[in-house]
Design a protein around this nucleic acid. Structure first.
Length: 693
DNA sequence: CTAGGGTTAG
């Protein structure tokens, strides 16, 4: 057999192998080596490494396994031959990990033949595979092996160990390792910075950065991304901007990730113009960059702009990814834009698998746009449900007044083995409260504390106090407050106070109102409630006092504003707006309804009109509240039986609450009103959320 | 052949 001359030249051959990236060529060389019996251990290892680089991991592995078997039978094993084979194994393990299958990487690692002694690289890759998988226990045993093998001070091994701990919430362990490291480079420091950020401790992250500088280590853009995130988290735009300046002065790489984190930081601080500007200067943008900007606008209430950016993102040729879609859905839910939300749902169905995040966002959108049925349908279609998805669906039932359904869901969830958390109970208790299921509410509050060992937080107390106070058990609610370990907060007092107002317990109410004022609330809604209670108790001087507070607080009066979506278009109604084209018809419709309502026993609750006016004028003012205009408009422009969904910027006043119940009964329509704080669902004259203010 | 970085859901 005629063989190429170079088969004898080991050095040339190895160079050839390392430059070859085509699997077919490698296979030919492999065959030649075997046929010519010139396959040395070293050559086969280089060949395996070349297979791994070329992406044929199976070939790489079988080559090495065969080599290892041959070595085991050989009489002599030199240390140099095993060290060259570990390099090939490392190439295989690293390729698995890079390729996105860390589990396969670990499988190969665990099955390493005894002749291949893992080195620093092997342990480093294996630990980072554990970090990807979240396998803390596996990482622990790899760490032990690495330490035994003498890599206790190896900066690569320690950094990947730090990352494993930091990523999975074991910051305590990370700090321990970090403290005893003899040498730390910027990767080590950046791991700690990022770790504290994701552990929700941005101040400690910034402190780490400071210590790094004191240590004389120069940061790079990766470290700075962590610091920028920390600035975003503590809402410190000034510090964020100075980091931005630092990046520019030191000519650090402004890559997509760095720029995106800056956009996010500015957006989270409400500096949307700056965010948009940084975004505009980016050389490359990807789906995440767009998502960050979009959700920035959405979260700052600039919903139209958020939706506009979604369209621009599409137009720029970028596939909207799940992050962008979540932001868009969020914008839809905030303004109750059901039609657009539905079309995004359709888009997801065509292009995506429903994962938990998308599913939760879509369900939440349907919930906030008033479509319980769509939310339920989608929920039933999603196979794998995580905690947050369950929580969203339970909250959705509660918001729509289906307390019993929420409870059923909760029990179903328990059967699947998903453990409820504090948010689950908050949703459940609020659902029970809004449906007036008092006994169940008390029962599950107890079980939360005793069986599930969840320490009740403020929101849980708010729900329970709300539940009791709504159903007239104001004294029992009051007793609950005295049994609390911590001092009741404003929110808790408010729940109790609104119960007092509804149940005409004015004496207790007055003392609670006094308590609230001592805590110096600056929320207009809270002050309005306090003032309403004083008004009900006819304490006019205190009413004036609170009104003055409201003015002094700079809480300028925002006009009430409601919107309703009809045939896919949103229509806005402002209280004092005279310009609507159908204004006359709307007023006529309201007058007609008013007559019928009064026949059924409706009495205008003029105590909700702030100004000192004649009774008739007050009554008229009430009937011009924006939500009523929107409802009348909806009645005029939809066919009988269609549900009306109204979104309002402020709270629905108690009088409108009453009125809507009657209107729902008279017209036999389901009416959903969502205001700044909560959801009200009216059907058959029953309202799921009986707040009277 | 090796370690660190961005968003989004209740």
């Amino acid at each position: 057999m005629h063989l190429p001359v170079f088969l004898d030249d080991q050095r040339r051959l190895r160079r050839l192998l390392s430059s070859c990236s085509a699997t077919r060529t490698l296979a030919r060389l492999h065959a030649l080596l075997i046929v010519s019996s010139s396959a040395s251990h070293q050559l086969l290892s280089s060949l395996a490494a070349a297979y791994a680089r070329a992406g044929d991991l199976a070939a790489a592995e079988s080559t090495l396994t065969a080599t290892a078997a041959a070595t085991a039978t050989a009489t002599t094993t030199t240390s140099s031959s095993s060290s060259s084979s570990i390099a090939a194994w490392n190439a295989i393990i690293a390729a698995h990990s890079r390729r996105g299958s860390p589990a396969a990487a670990l499988r190969v690692f665990r099955a390493l033949p005894p002749a291949a002694r893992p080195d620093s690289t092997t342990f480093t890759i294996a630990l980072s595979a554990c970090a990807r998988l979240g396998d803390l226990r596996g990482g622990e045993s790899i760490k032990d092996r690495a330490y035994e093998a003498g890599y206790k001070d190896d900066i690569f091994v320690c950094s990947s160990l730090l990352h494993l701990y930091a990523k999975w919430g074991a910051m305590g362990d990370a700090v321990k390792v970090f403290d005893r490291m003899p040498r730390r480079d910027r990767v080590t420091w950046s791991t700690m910075v990022a770790g504290f950020v994701s552990a929700g401790d941005p101040l400690e992250a910034i402190e780490m950065y400071r210590r790094m500088r004191v240590d004389g280590v120069q940061g790079d853009e990766v470290v700075m991304v962590g610091v920028i995130q920390a600035c975003a988290a503590i809402r410190d735009a000034r510090m964020g901007a100075s980091v931005h300046g630092h990046l520019l002065r030191h000519e650090m790489r402004m890559d997509v990730v760095t720029a995106t984190s800056l956009v996010d930081m500015y957006a989270k601080n409400g500096l949307l113009d700056v965010a948009r500007c940084v975004f505009g200067l980016m050389m490359h943008r990807n789906a995440v960059s767009w998502s960050v900007l979009i959700s920035g606008f959405a979260q700052n209430g600039q919903l139209d702009e958020a939706l506009h950016l979604c369209r621009k993102m599409q137009a720029s040729g970028l596939q909207a990814d799940s992050g962008a879609l979540v932001s868009a859905l969020l914008a839809c839910s905030d303004i109750g834009f059901l039609k657009l939300g539905r079309s995004i749902h359709g888009f997801i169905l065509r292009r995506f698998e429903f994962n938990c995040i998308l599913g939760t966002a879509t369900i939440d959108m349907y919930s906030k746009c008033g479509s319980l049925a769509s939310a339920q349908m989608l929920f039933n279609l999603i196979g794998s449900r995580d905690l947050i998805l369950w929580n969203a669906m339970i909250a959705c039932c509660g918001a729509h007044g289906q307390g019993q359904d929420a409870l059923t869901l909760f029990q179903e969830m328990n059967k699947t083995g998903t453990r409820p958390d504090h948010a689950t109970f908050a949703s459940l208790l609020s659902a029970l409260s809004h449906s007036g299921l008092v006994e169940e509410g008390k029962l599950w509050f107890d079980r939360m504390v005793n069986d599930f060992k969840i320490t009740p937080a403020e929101k849980h107390y708010v729900c329970l106090v709300d539940l009791l106070a709504r159903s007239g058990l104001v004294e029992e609610a009051n007793d609950l407050l005295t049994s609390m370990k911590a001092e009741p907060t404003i929110a808790i007092w408010v729940a109790l106070l609104s119960g007092c107002l509804n149940n005409k317990k004015l004496e207790l109410g007055e003392s609670i109102a006094d308590n609230i004022l001592e805590l110096q609330p600056d929320d207009v809604g809270v002050l309005a409630l306090v003032s309403n209670l004083y008004a009900a108790a006819k304490k006019w001087d205190r009413v004036r006092e609170v009104r003055k507070l409201m003015k002094d607080n700079g809480s300028k009066k925002v006009p009430g504003c409601s919107s309703i979506e009809i045939h896919g278009t949103r229509h806005m109604f402002v209280m004092e707006d005279q310009s609507h084209p159908q204004r006359r018809e709307i007023i006529k419709k309201l007058a007609k309804l008013d007559l019928e309502m009064r026949k059924m026993g409706y009495v205008p609750r003029t105590e909700f009109v702030y100004h000192d006016l004649e009774k008739e004028v007050k009554e008229q003012q009430l009937s011009y509240h924006s939500e009523r205009l929107a409802i009348a408009f909806g009645l005029l422009n939809t066919s009988p039986g269609t549900r009306l969904v109204i979104i309002k910027n402020l709270r629905v006043c108690g009088d409108c609450h009453d009125a809507i119940k009657y209107i729902s009964k008279i017209t036999d329509r389901g009416i959903v009103v969502r205001d700044a704080k909560r959801f009200h669902h009216f059907k058959d004259g029953v309202c799921s959320c009986r707040d009277y203010w």
